[in-house]
Structures are given as structure tokens and as C-alpha cells.
Amino acid sequence: MTVLKVTNLTKQFGKFKALNGINLEVNKGEVFGFIGPNGAGKSTAIRILLGMLQATNGHVTIFGKDAWQDAVEVHKRTAYVPGDVNLWPNLTGGEVIDLFIKLRGGEPNNRRAELIEKFSLDPTKKCSTYSKGNRQKIALIAAFSSDADLYILDEPTSGLDPLMEQVFQQCVVEAKKEGKSILLSSHILSEVERLCDRVGIIRHGEIIESGSLQELRHLTRTQMIIETKQPITGLTELDGVHDIETNHQELKFDVDTEKLDQVIKHISAYGINKLESAPPTLEDLFMRHYQVTSNKVGG
């Protein structure tokens, strides 16, 4: 079941095209990772999902309702955590959490106390004295103590320490178990890799890649380090082998995932002493797309 559907979304700021016909879908009980370099249009897209910006073209439906027109209805079942949490300097953290819960239409519950404990936040301090990480905790506590069906998280952990980041990941996993959907925009790719079922990569306002991590890995290369009994010949002529580096007996190269079979057959003939292979990480994937961009620009 589709919870969030973005069709052909375009947003123009004057002459600048921030989003150019993007398509996205988030299903029930799914964690969707939304990644891309700075300025690619992630936050613009998220702000359109939240009905704060009006799309120039295209549609966003959440729970089957229009994100702009029925914003209030949609938000009854949505929780949002921004990357940069600005709070009122003269209110305390506790007051802000209560206010947020109430504004979503919820009632104070024991999740609040539980999460304050988990995130180890002192709710009696004024927001002006909180660090970035602590302000982020407030937004996270308010979001996860609410009973939402869709969580929109825009770089929610950029200020958290590793311990707190783990607490955050637990919260996401729990929410997913309860059948909730999560749209997670993040630069911490290991986090996306661990949590997300599917990923969309955005660049220059366009979705350039999307699918499950499994699917995406097929598009990339596996790194191999091998040592053989006899020196290998003819490796350079093989299709799908890239960036060969020789280091004494050791040979290091990348293989297109779909050509893996042929390459292994070829090298096994030379007697293998050592074989290490590393699956492509999301980071490799991301970097490859990102580098293509910079090359194109000329940087």
C-alpha cells in the first residue's frame, strides 16, 4: 500500500529549477532513504511534502490526500523532524515537547517520559542553552512520542553523538515494526544502509537512481584483492575489470557486479592464494554518482 506518492514534481524558484519532475513512492511499513549531495533539492522536496511550499507542477499525495490542499488532515498522521531545529529561546525543552504533542492533536503520554529518559535530555533547561544535538533530541522526542503513521525525517541525526544515534535507530526500527512508514533524508550513509529498505538518490533536482539496496548494488562494482600462485595474464583484456593496481604479489581491482562470474572463472585457473572481496557500499555508489557530477561541472 502506497502511503506517499510523488508524481512528476517540479519546483521553480524564479529562473532556478530546484526540482525537475521527480517521482517517489513510500509504502506502508517501509523505510525510504532519500540521499543526495548538498543543494540537490532534498529539503525543497520535503518542504513540499509538508505543504509549506507549493509545487510548480506535479502532485504529492500522502494517505491519498493532497499535501498542499489537505495539509492539516495529512499532518494529523505525520511527524516531522527538521535537520536544523530552531526553537523559542525563552521556553524550556519540556514545554516545547508538550506544545508539539498538543499541536499535533495528541495527548501527553508515557512515551514522552520514556523517550526523555532514553535520549537523556534535561527538559527544564531553556532552549537557548541547548546545543544543536539537544535541540534535535527535542524534535525527535516530540515526533516519536506521537502516534504518527508517516515520519518525515530530514537529516535528523546530524548533531547527535553515536550513542544517541543508536537510540534514534532503535526508534526507527520500532516504528517500522509497528507498520509505520519513514522517509529518511540523511548524509550518514551507513545509517541509511542499515535502516532503509529502499533508497532514492537525488542530484540537481532529479531522481537519478532509486530502488532497493539489492537492486542498486547490481549497478555497481565489487572490489577484489587477490594473490595467485602464478602471475595472472590477460586480466586487462577481460570485460568489466577496472582500476587494476599491482602491489608485490597482490592485485587489486574493481569488477562490474554482473561480470563477476567470468572474472572468477578466469582467475581461478592461476591458483588462488588469497581472495578478499568487498561488496559495494552505499558510499561507493553515492560517490560514483557524485563524482560524475563534479566531472561534468569540471571540478
Binding site: 523559542w88 525563552n90 506544545l99 527538559p123 527544564t124 533547561k125 537557548s128
Partner: peptide
């Protein structure tokens, strides 16, 4: 300097108008 504040929001604060007034 400012003193430590409340742990919970008063019922009065928990609405847009209450917040606007409080600010």
C-alpha cells in the same frame, strides 16, 4: 541570568495563541 524553567507546559501554553502570547 535565566533560572531553570518548567518541566511541563501549562495547559494554557499548549495552543498556537497561547504560545504567541507567551512569546
Amino acid at each position: 541570568s535565566s533560572k531553570p524553567g518548567k518541566k511541563h507546559a501549562s495547559p494554557f501554553l499548549q495552543s498556537p495563541i497561547g504560545l504567541a502570547l507567551r512569546l
